[in-house]
Amino acid sequence: MAEQTQVLTDIDRLLQVAERLKNFLSEEAIENVKVHNGEVTVTVKRENLTEALQYLRDEEKFEMLVDATAVDYMHLRNETRFDVVYHLLSLTHRLRLRVKVSVRSDDAWVPTVCHIYPSANPYEREIWDMFGIHVEGHPNLKRILTYDEFPGHPLRKDFPLFWQPGQPLEKPEEKFEEW
């Protein structure tokens, strides 16, 4: 008589990872865990970010940082304007996990994770270049996509899209507020 084994889906396994992460850090270190479209997103506090990623890499075998980027929620949220997003891949367990950090616009910085994932180096430069989110402790925090003299950070929602060099950098009209 074959023993009945429970088959865990990827979402179950990822939620277990999130649960173990919560046990490792603390209850209040994790803001929320969301499941959407078969993908699991863990939002952690900024002060626990490096600790969380270190744990996920060493203990949960998420060896690879696939992408790190940011999102500007300027017109959609009041408290925290930016989300910095880290996409992790576990080659051992064939799992993908998303880790988010919320950042206020008047306090826009995140700690570097270069010493955990060396591939974060260009991604964090891009976060600085495009969103103006400072990356504390980065070994070479320069602009990566635009040129050094570029004013502002073009992926912010209040950057004037049609600006050209030589023109004054004016904020776009407030008509975007309507939607």
Binding site: T146, P154, F159, P160, L161, F162, W163, Q164
Partner: peptide
């Protein structure tokens, strides 16, 4: 590409 990055 009518934007800040491209020479018009």
């Amino acid at each position: 590409f009518q934007n800040y990055a491209i020479v018009q």
